[in-house]
Design a protein around this nucleic acid. Sequence first.
DNA 1: AATGCGTGGTA
DNA 2: TTACCAAGCAT
Length: 320
Amino acid sequence: MEPGLQQGPQLHTEIISWFTANARDLPWRRPECSPWGVFVSEIMLQQTPVIRVLPVWQQWMERWPAPAALAAEPSGEAVRAWGRLGYPRRALRLHAAAAAMTERFNGSVPGTRDELLTLPGVGTYTAAAVASFAFGRRETVVDTNIRRVHARALSGKALPAPALNAAELRLAVALLPDDDAASVAWNASVMELGALVCTARSPKCALCPVQRRCAWVAAGEPAPEYVPKGQTWAGTDRQVRGALMAVLRQAREPVPRKLLVGPPELLAADGAAEDADPEPAALSKLHALRAPAGQLERALTGLLADKLAEESDAGLQLPA
DNA sequence: AATGCGTGGTA
DNA sequence: TTACCAAGCAT
């Protein structure tokens, strides 16, 4: 038997009861929310906090209430409506997923894990989450919150392994209730516990419904076995691309390529940046990076030229 | 299997 | 202020 499972059904009862009393009232959890609404929320929530997703999700649902509505517009519109959620390639994949639903799934979100996995931007977690939360299927949902709760409560560790491993997956499978409805409740409850109480930094153990049976607490809250390495940022293509995206998002018309890539001194000299409005703050930030021309070109090509310049969409188009 | 990918709040 | 980190995915 997996470690921790000898605790019996009390663990499930305690956590699900806690969820019933403490869950956030998120719009994509309401019974009237469509599978499409759940799908959009899951993509937006990848590596992005709930608080920042909420307003964007509301706007998307009003503008594009079904996959076909989104698929009917240029992908550049999806990128603009994405706003500042980050990882804008998710907007492109969500648009492509909507097109795939329109073409291959009769305009609906597919309901099985295997079908969902065929959609762009959908991996193991998202496929299981949508099948579980939107369609009530019994699927093993494993996200970073759930992994952390499992690591602490059942394995006695401060943090889960750097990457999902076979032992973690076995444990998650073993913990999933047999009943469909109970499995959905379990998935949502453990995830919420990880998001609100069993957090990565400063977990709120005093509020935890299973503190008494937590293996990590029982072990004296040992420190993590490894130090997570941070995401590098300064000087990376990501930083340059982020600055480029900020300029393009706010642009009302095509942005001259040389305004993005060219040396600021030359731009000022030939007057390119002087007409119309004062230079946008976003453009100043881009220029302040002093990124090499090669890197600017790479950032443009990697995300924009291939995916967006083909659009006839004014704000994001890059003239040849 | 390890990297790269945006953004902004928090400690 | 700097570093961490937030419902992952694709390569």
